[in-house]
Design a protein around this nucleic acid. Sequence first.
DNA 1: CCAATTCCCTATCGTGTTGGTAGGTTTTAT
DNA 2: ATAAAACCTACCAACACGATAGGGAATTGG
Lengths: 144, 144
Amino acid sequence: MISTRGRYAIRVMIDLAEHNTSEYIRLKDISERQGISQKYLESITATLSKSGLIDGAHGKGGGYRLNRQPSDYSIGEILRLTEGSLAPVACLGCDAKPCEKEATCRTLPMWSKLYNMVNDFFDGISVADLVKKGEDDGFFGACL
Amino acid sequence: MISTRGRYAIRVMIDLAEHNTSEYIRLKDISERQGISQKYLESITATLSKSGLIDGAHGKGGGYRLNRQPSDYSIGEILRLTEGSLAPVACLGCDAKPCEKEATCRTLPMWSKLYNMVNDFFDGISVADLVKKGEDDGFFGACL
DNA sequence: CCAATTCCCTATCGTGTTGGTAGGTTTTAT
DNA sequence: ATAAAACCTACCAACACGATAGGGAATTGG
């Protein structure tokens, strides 16, 4: 399950991409457009900003804006940042603790393959792809 | 994340497949072989038994055994039974509550595609495939 | 028939995560 | 100076997870 943190992060990025000028976008506006509590969004944009995905400006006239082109953000990096690892089991991923049964485990190869599949899937989608979707020129036209 | 319930269920099924005679296998033995608390396993085998995946026999000489050939169990049906839905977001899956933004949601097609991918992935693997893995004749030889 | 064995059922419980709130501090433009 | 905005820290209710405990019901060996 992808939690709200990751999903809201994606929606913020889409919102910023849809208003992608040189101006800074106020969190208040994003929160109103997306219908998500501003306070809760703060904790998410803080993560995005600290890691350099977006640029946050203090004070009057401040807000957030993208640091790159929407097509240069993969959904994978957004989710890995906000959700932690996308690993389906604890034995995999960045903070995986070594398992003594690893060598004989009958299921590890399955989890590992899924892990790769999911990462590749999300790495193959950009923020720009999701924005395009709303314009009926979608990446996913064939799947719904 | 796949929880222990689903993972242990798979391990039980593999264990039963590896001792697949007409005899009933005691939960005590499975628990010792797998190194999982018998009491905790009880709640999992109860689910498997109630839904007809395995056959449980009471009393002396009782235990559990498979109802079909190991190759006739897909990992998908085991996980969907023990984990609930494999949907990455609440808007999808069996108990999905309708979302008013569904028509304009920019991310739903992505989740939907992933959902199908994951289901297809697990439906394409059988318990027999995972047993084979241990015999160096694996389904997953190329992926680890 | 009795007692051991085994699956089955219900309740409980500590721990951690999730989703969110609250209040304040710092930075900046006007 | 003042207002606006990002930033930071702490806290909290609700829930799920992983597991334990204690018994009850069915079956069989003796």
